[in-house]
Design a protein around this nucleic acid. Structure first.
Length: 418
RNA sequence: GCGGGCUUAGCUCAGUCGGUAGAGUACCAGAUUGUGGCUCUGGGUGUCGCGGGUUCAAAUCCCGUAGCUCGCCCCA
């Protein structure tokens, strides 16, 4: 049997209703906040990602699906969206100076990783980007948006962690302070963290290793390296959140993986997710547009892992409520009535009723059973007698009552499908 | 890239000491000759992941391999 590619999965009809629910929330709430949808291709020139995400990150180093096309150009299935969105904004000149551009997106991303709970090689993200404002109210706005998305889709009990990396200079200064500190306690670090010390020392702060955590506890914090403007910006973001009663936890060790982040960074965590407890995250990326060849443009955004959101939802849903897949099931006694059944079905569909007919020429009993299984509120029963008399049986499936109805009047029959 | 667990019917799983596979559920048929649910009766629908080895005999023991899953790394 041919199987789907490792780390990819089919979204089966049984699971689709939660996807629809969450996609509706994405569209409706984003619109309420004045965000417009932007769809970009699922592959880009490789440099879109290699120039923005960071050469030392695992995403660029070992997780990209990169290939050369027939013209010899290096292309990559998008491993994240922000860089692609920025590319599109620059290419299409969507940004007017002095105003804000509000964009949201939804779609599949691709990373070559070992799959585990809440992690796939093809996975979906929703994201929102607020471009053009350096001010703390835009930081707050995107967090309000995320908050409302969770509220509307029924996700509660999550934790918002927030931190500031400061300006690029602050970040660099902190990096040096950290290298100095961790080098001094090198002997106590785990093997992984020794590697991080060479490549991405900030990430040591995120280590899950017990011993590392002990060392990390007394590491210098980035707050100490922030200049006054950065500190002001951060404080102001927090006060905006306070004013709107958004709960958060300042997490001095939150650094996030992508190189383009500066100033505010944040992450949403939920305890029901297993090892990957983060189901969304974002931050400010004032340097990204210039890295991609545009004018320096302040921006902030976040992304949500849709499969992880669905995991949270499924955890909350104790029982799946049976959805009725059809309103009226048309039962035919023999195959001879199937044309009549289909004519009737199409007429009733014109009344916006969900109609199912039998396609397998099964017994009346089987058809009734299926009608029941599909949650049909009514069956219309057609047999030889009905064809001769021009009358049809309409059976109410919840109380078993049957009435005879003339063909001409079946279009007026009041089906109570609620 | 590394480590643990798992793989038997459509699904969830049992299978003892090696003796050629079973339960629940789903499904189909009948009881009810034109009518669902509830009940009863009957029906097994299988490449025991795959390949090799040991053996008179392998779902079971050994070796290899693939897939799934959870974790590490990293990230949504």
């Amino acid at each position: 049997m041919i199987q789907s590619v490792r780390g990819t999965k089919d979204i089966l009809p049984d699971a689709i209703s939660n996807w629809h629910l969450i996609e509706d929330v994405f569209r409706n709430i984003s619109t309420l906040f004045g965000y417009e949808e932007l769809r970009t291709p699922i592959f880009e020139k490789t440099e879109v990602f290699s120039r923005s995400i960071g050469e030392t990150t695992d995403i660029v180093n070992k997780e990209m699906y990169t290939f050369t096309d027939r013209s010899g150009e290096s292309l990559t299935l998008r491993p994240e969206m922000t860089a692609a969105i920025a590319r599109s904004i620059l290419q299409n000149s969507l940004l007017d100076a002095g105003t804000s551009l509000r964009i949201w997106y939804f779609g599949p991303l691709f990373r070559y990783e070992r799959p585990q709970k809440g992690r796939f090689r093809q996975f979906y993200q929703y994201g929102a980007e607020c471009i053009g404002s350096p001010n703390p109210e835009s930081d707050a706005e995107v967090i309000f948006l995320a908050h409302q998305l969770f509220k509307s889709s029924g996700i509660g009990n999550y934790k918002l962690l927030i931190n500031s990396l400061g300006s690029d200079e602050n970040r660099l200064a902190y990096r040096n302070v950290l290298i100095k500190y961790f080098t001094s306690v090198k002997s106590k670090l785990s093997e992984d963290s020794l590697f991080r010390l060479e490549n991405n020392p900030l990430r040591i702060l995120d280590s899950k290793d017990e011993q590392d955590r002990y060392v990390i506890a007394s590491a210098p914090q980035i707050i100490e390296c922030l200049n006054p403007e950065s500190k002001n910006h951060f404080d102001s973001v927090l006060s905006n959140l306070d004013a709107s009663s958004i709960d958060y936890e300042i997490s001095p060790r939150l650094v996030r993986g992508l190189d383009y982040y500066n100033h505010t960074v944040f992450e949403f965590q939920h305890s029901s997710l297993g090892a990957q407890d983060s189901f969304g995250g974002g931050g400010r990326y004032n340097g990204l547009f210039s890295q991609l060849g545009g004018k320096p443009t302040p921006a902030i955004g976040f992304a949500l892992g849709v499969e992880r959101m669905l995991l949270i939802l499924e955890n909350n849903q104790t029982e799946k409520q049976a959805t009725n897949k059809t309103d009226v099931y048309i039962v035919t006694h023999t195959h001879a009535q199937s044309q009549f059944a289909q004519i009737l079905a199409n007429k009733l569909r014109g009344r916006n009723l969900k109609i199912t007919t039998d396609l397998n020429r099964r017994s009346v009993k089987s058809q009734m059973r299926e009608a029941n299984r599909l949650g049909a509120k009514y069956t219309v029963i057609i047999g030889e007698n009905e064809v001769l008399s021009g009358n049809y049986m309409i059976k109410n499936m919840s109380n078993g009552e049957q009435v005879e109805c003339e063909l001409d009047r079946i279009m007026e029959y009041e089906f109570n499908i609620f």
